[in-house]
Design a protein around this nucleic acid. Structure first.
Length: 614
DNA sequence: ATAGGGTTAG
């Protein structure tokens, strides 16, 4: 629940900035197809588990290691095409290779995440009479799990018995993982409990780690810690992986203090931290801006003989870049090379983003070119960073060239790419081009998300095309995309700009019934609308109200209402608010300053204000 | 050398 609230807050506060919000870092899983209805679904948890885990159930022994092997080479493929070719070659061989070799191919294809390809290869094997073994079944179960088709996973489980095989701990671990991927934690934990109760198939460290990971992904750190406790109480010895998982989850929730506590607990239990533990902690403290702590951890790991790797350095480089210290970041990259750690695409992407943030686009492009010249592949992400940089710094022409370049280079522009460019066009007033791109992305199979609609809605509103905006808003709802507070804020602003302040007020007050919480930006937009419509007392009322509703005004809110008072010649009230604003650590923005200086020059305000607005 | 788990960049 907390995780969801946090997600909502972040989504709302990310506002109109395109592309690089921290939303993507949320552990919200992108779901695949909905599971197909499967008559065997009910089979599992009731019939199967009750039978399997029944006491004194006699079972055949599980085939452990194959006695003889005809494998002379390790199967390793780089892509799906290679795998399919190999598979076909194997089918031509006489005698046919053993199922073990086929399993190797299936495993490789599964590792490439081509899960449905694995299923169809397995079907072909079946047609050709290549009998699957228990390993094959486990592979197939895993693939159905990743395809969010637990029903089919469970029906494969049924096949185990028909073929005379026995599910083992790997089978159950895979199923647990599958349930977690479908957000069925209760079913997942249920399997664990059955395993513990029956003693037929004891959970191993994988079982626990899978469950811990699943609970952490849902933000359930407490549940994860409880599982850890169960392990420590004798269910299974915890290892560094389970600690790393929980430490990472705590760090991602900015609970670095708890993460460090768990870290020392782990070491006192005699479990040695590894490079991943340190990378996770360093990442956690860097995200909180605790640079000194990051350096301390870095030195600590080195003193323990744990060598920083490309991940460690990438965290440091990225943090420095985000702080605007690209120079420092660059020297870290040099340090990497000295230590024989090769920078990768991630490193270069961070540097590029760092330069883009400072508007140093030539330097950003230079990093991009260096990356390519060193033989690294620019990924979609690299292009998105650079395209975003160019768009934000008014070079949409350059951004467009990159967009064409990436498409030509075989990279598929994603929703982020399109969102970035659409925003770029909108911000340059080229709404028509933005709309064309909006159509293109859909033709190319990239689905617009809430952010896409928000960007385009904002463009239309700012271009005074209110009716078009409302049409688009309806289209969005028709696509079952839930408009968030950002979208409503844009519409409210659009209505205000279009002089329909009454409509804006109605929409604003309807937010609460929609379960949406206006954020500081929403309030500021509404206050600004009221001020511009001359409704200064209503604006003031809302200004007081927002604080009561737990939303503190920021610099922008203060500047807006202060200008409102000045424009209504309510100088003393404006001055009182300027004092309040300064006390709260905010300062006058350019437009307020200009207004005050103008009033000062006409002797309309107290000269003492000058000191305040500096 | 057949199956299942953990870390970084938007």
């Amino acid at each position: 629940m907390l995780r969801m609230m946090r997600a909502a807050t972040i989504a709302a506060s990310s506002s109109l900035k395109v592309g690089y919000g921290i939303g993507s870092r949320l552990r919200v899983k992108v779901r695949g197809m909905p599971p197909l209805p499967c008559p065997l679904r009910n089979f599992t948890l009731f019939r199967f588990f009750n039978n399997y885990f029944a006491p004194f159930h006699s079972r055949p022994s599980y085939p452990t290691k194959s006695t003889k092997t005809q494998l002379h080479q390790l199967v390793k493929v780089a892509n799906l095409d290679d795998a399919l070719r190999l598979f076909d070659e194997m089918l031509q061989m006489r005698p046919l290779p053993s199922v073990v070799r086929f399993n190797q191919v299936l495993t490789q294809v599964a590792k490439l995440k081509h899960y449905s390809a694995v299923i169809s290869l397995n079907d072909q094997m079946g047609l050709l009479g290549i009998g699957p073994n228990a390993y094959t079944q486990n592979i197939i179960i895993n693939c159905f799990c990743h395809l969010s088709q637990m029903g089919f996973s469970l029906s494969v489980l049924g096949k185990f018995f028909k073929l005379g095989f026995e599910p083992n701990v790997v089978t159950f671990n895979t199923l647990i993982n599958g349930f977690l991927l479908e957000d069925r934690e209760a079913d997942a934990v249920g399997i664990l409990n059955k395993m513990m109760e029956s003693g037929n198939c004891k959970p191993d460290v994988f079982t626990f780690n899978i469950l811990v990971k699943g609970l952490c992904m849902k933000g359930n750190n407490v549940g994860a810690m409880q599982l850890l406790k169960r392990m420590e109480q004798g269910a299974c010895n915890p290892d560094v992986v389970v600690y790393n998982t929980i430490i990472d989850s705590l760090c991602k929730d900015t609970l670095v203090v708890d993460a460090l506590k768990l870290f020392s607990e782990m070491t006192s239990q005699g479990i040695a931290p590894d490079v991943i533990t340190y990378n996770t902690l360093i990442h956690g403290v860097c995200k909180l801006g605790e640079w000194k702590e990051a350096v301390r951890l870095f030195n600590e790991m080195v003193s323990k003989g744990i060598f920083p790797d490309v991940f460690t350095f990438n965290v440091l480089v990225d943090t420095l870049c985000k702080e605007g210290l690209v120079g420092e970041a660059k020297s870290k990259v040099e340090m990497m090379t000295q230590r024989d750690i090769e920078p990768n695409t991630v490193t270069y992407n961070s540097l590029m983003d760092g330069y883009c943030l400072r508007g140093e686009m030539d330097e950003a492009k230079e990093v991009f070119d260096i990356m390519l010249s060193k033989g690294f592949v620019a990924d979609t992400h690299s292009y998105n960073i650079l395209i975003n940089g160019y768009c934000k710094h008014k070079r949409i022409d350059k951004a467009w060239i990159l967009f064409l370049d990436m498409s030509g280079g075989g990279l598929v522009p994603n929703t982020v790419t399109y969102n970035t460019l659409i925003d770029g066009f909108c911000k340059r007033g080229r709404i028509h081009d933005a709309q064309k791109l909006f159509a293109t992305m859909q033709v190319c199979g990239q689905l617009p998300d809430v952010q896409t609609y928000a960007i385009l809605l904002d463009g239309l509103c700012k271009d005074q095309q209110l009716s078009k905006a409302i049409e688009l808003f309806e289209e969005m709802k028709g696509k079952r995309l839930d408009p968030n507070i950002v979208v409503y804020s844009i519409l409210i602003e659009g209505l205000c700009i279009g002089g329909k302040v009454e409509c804006a007020k109605d929409l604003f007050s309807s937010l609460f019934s929609k379960g949406l919480q206006p954020n500081v930006r929403t309030f500021t937009i509404m206050i600004s609308g009221l001020c511009n419509a001359g409704l200064i007392s209503e604006a003031e009322q809302l200004f007081t109200e927002m604080e009561e509703k737990g939303c503190s005004p920021d610099s922008c809110t203060y500047n807006t209402i202060i200008r409102g008072f000045f424009n209504k010649n309510e100088t003393s009230r404006a001055m009182r608010l300027i004092h309040e604003m300064v006390e709260r650590g905010w300062s006058a923005d350019a437009s307020t300053t200009e207004l005050i200086i103008d009033l000062l020059s006409r002797d309309k305000v107290d000269p003492s204000l000058l000191a305040l607005i500096k």
